[in-house]
């Protein structure tokens, strides 16, 4: 074993021990990447299909409801169906209104520390699992463009908060059913749960934890931010759960709205 001397450069590399195999792990290390790939692929396929099919994303006054799919809210294009807009409309946008907004939640999730862990492992194989060889010869991590852009997570978080507010507004609005008045329907519950999960996902985000108090050197002279940080920290520990739950539920919410809008099911009124 070598000498630590400030003056000498220690030799870092050399012949390594052990057999030249990808891994010696005997457990089912491939299971987790397989699950991740399956769920994320399913989501991407579904959301792409949904974005390209701007129909049935809104259940309006005709059906005495006010339910909008989260993929299309806020609906900003002039092509948005009546009732789904939020006050102003961009004229001249001929594509699906989903494309105007999806970049923001997509960016938030793509740069999310948890999703990064998952897709780097499952899709990029760097590494596929712990102590299993990287699938690539060269690796520069997040030091260069485009992955350098992962550092923008914080700014997507800010947009995420705006979207959460809008979706919360959508959920609250749904409780007022046109022509009937206040009421709780299956749709109001779906939209409320969706908004709640999105809030939990955003608030439990690492950038949020940093902004609330993590950036401080001392807590004792910032009692309010310390309390915020202590509130966020346990949420942050469950960030993974919220990430999956909110992802799956947002797709299910879209499915639900589409089914109601197309008349395949009715939005059951509870009281």
């Amino acid at each position: 074993m070598a000498v630590i001397e400030s003056s000498t450069d220690v030799v870092l590399s050399g012949v390594r021990g052990g057999p030249a195999v990808k891994t010696l792990r005997q457990d089912r290390w491939w299971l987790q990447p397989v699950v991740t790939v399956s769920i994320l692929t399913a989501f991407v396929v579904y959301s792409t299909w949904s974005a390209f099919n701007p129909h049935n994303y809104y259940v309006g006054a005709m059906m005495h409801r006010d339910l909008i799919s989260p993929f299309f809210s806020p609906c900003l294009a002039s092509s948005c169906v009546e009732g789904s807009q939020i006050g102003f409309a961009l004229s001249g946008w001929s594509l699906s209104p989903a494309f105007l907004i999806l970049i923001f939640p997509l960016g938030f999730r793509l740069t999310c520390y948890y999703y990064r862990r998952s897709y780097y492992r499952a899709f990029w194989w760097s590494p596929p699992a712990c102590a299993v060889s990287d699938g690539h010869k060269k690796y520069t991590g997040e030091t260069r463009f485009p992955l350098l852009m992962q550092n923008a997570h914080r700014y997507f978080f800010y947009f995420g908060i705006v979207f959460n507010c809008l979706l919360t507004y959508d959920a609250l609005r749904a409780f007022h059913q046109p022509g009937i008045g206040f009421g709780v329907t299956l749709g109001t519950i779906v939209l409320t749960v969706n908004a709640t999960l999105l809030w939990l996902y955003s608030l439990s985000c690492h950038a949020c934890r940093h902004l609330c108090g993590g950036s401080l050197k001392t807590f004792s002279n910032h009692p309010v931010r310390h309390r915020l940080w202590k509130f966020i920290t346990p949420l942050n520990e469950n960030h993974m759960k919220f990430a999956w739950a909110s992802l799956i539920f947002v797709a299910l919410t879209d499915v639900f709205v589409r089914l109601v809008a197309s008349g395949a099911i009715t939005d059951f009124r509870l009281f």
Partner: peptide
């Protein structure tokens, strides 16, 4: 097996001077 990341000295012992 010895730790894979560090150069082997012998058997299960590796040269961990990278860390120091």
């Amino acid at each position: 097996t010895p730790m894979k990341t560090f150069p082997i000295i012998r058997d299960l012992v590796t040269d961990v001077s990278f860390n120091y």
